[in-house]
Amino acid sequence: MMLDPGGLIATGLLATMLVTGAVALLVNDLLVAAALFGVFSFAAAAWFAALGAVDVAFTEACVGGALTTILLVAATFRTTRRLDR
């Protein structure tokens, strides 16, 4: 792996996405999962921006970071917060 700062940042963002995504799948509290999905989206947006795809990053920040998180929280309130397995 290259040790340039850009590569390190991109790798850190990818790791953040991996961890938040995995934890969001595993937690039983759906509100926590929605919040983690917001973090995931912002990490993805920052990753896209680091790769130079600014338009994609912008879209991901708008849709994934803001809109989807709002809708997921609303849907959580409308259905159930606890996921009983």
């Binding site: 709002i70 809708l71 609303a74 849907a75 309130f77 409308r78």
Partner: peptide
């Protein structure tokens, strides 16, 4: 938003 959030 109107369909998902309203009614909560």
């Amino acid at each position: 938003f109107e369909t998902i959030a309203v009614g909560v």
